[in-house]
């Protein structure tokens, strides 16, 4: 995006107003996304704080980007993974795939929205049965509305791999959902 390219260039030139604008524009997205990996609020806000301060320190040495949001999401993701590896170093190395923790998260989000309670529970239930990686790609695509290119940047995989993973994930989601709906219908019928 041309706009992002221009804003990023101004930020690289040390424009404080643009720096502040970038923080305000993306803070919430970063926080909500980071919350999926790191449930500790303080540790998370520290991570985001460090991300932005290090960006500011290196602003004149940064490369250019026309994709600010995916760039920030990716940087935060790497930061959190590093942080987790550092703190869990003596216990065990976590698999990257196991990072997308969200026990109540997705469910509670859905429950707060306006859709019928039953539907929301079903959707949350089905989401839970997916792998963390699959949940994450759904999150990036539908919660954060990223394009496949942007998801590829965040997850550091190729664009075809994103399309592939998305399609497979959603197919699996549908199959599981259909099974669930079917079960519910059967249950009602048998009552």
């Amino acid at each position: 995006m041309e706009k992002d390219l221009l804003l990023w260039q101004k930020f690289k030139n040390g424009d404080r107003a643009v720096f502040e604008w970038i923080i305000r524009e993306h803070y919430r997205t970063l926080f909500d996304y980071g919350k999926k990996f790191l449930s500790d609020r303080d540790a998370l806000t520290d991570c985001i704080h460090d991300l932005f301060t290090s960006l500011w320190e290196r602003h004149s040495f940064l490369g250019s980007t026309d994709q600010i949001k995916p760039y920030l999401l990716k940087s935060l993701r790497n930061r959190i993974i590093k942080e987790k590896q550092r703190s869990n170093h003596f216990i065990f190395m976590e698999q990257e795939d196991e990072l997308f923790l969200n026990e109540e998260d997705i469910e509670s989000k859905i429950i707060t929205s306006e859709y019928t309670e039953e539907k929301k529970k079903q959707i949350g239930y089905v989401l839970h049965t997916l792998t963390p990686r699959q949940q994450e790609i759904i999150y990036l695509k539908f919660y954060e509305n990223l394009t496949n290119d942007q998801i590829a940047t965040v997850l550091a995989i190729s664009r075809p791999a994103v399309a592939n993973l998305l399609h497979a994930t959603l197919r699996l989601f549908r199959e599981k959902w259909e099974t669930l709906l079917h079960t519910v219908v059967l249950f009602i019928a048998s009552c």
Partner: peptide
């Protein structure tokens, strides 16, 4: 799509303001 689109954030406006100020202050 509608359900996924209406996601609430846990971060209040006040918290956001505090964090932004903190970053600006450190830099």
């Amino acid at each position: 799509l509608l359900t996924w689109n209406q996601t609430g954030s846990e971060l209040t406006e006040g918290d956001l303001e505090k964090q932004v100020t903190r970053i600006l202050h450190s830099t």
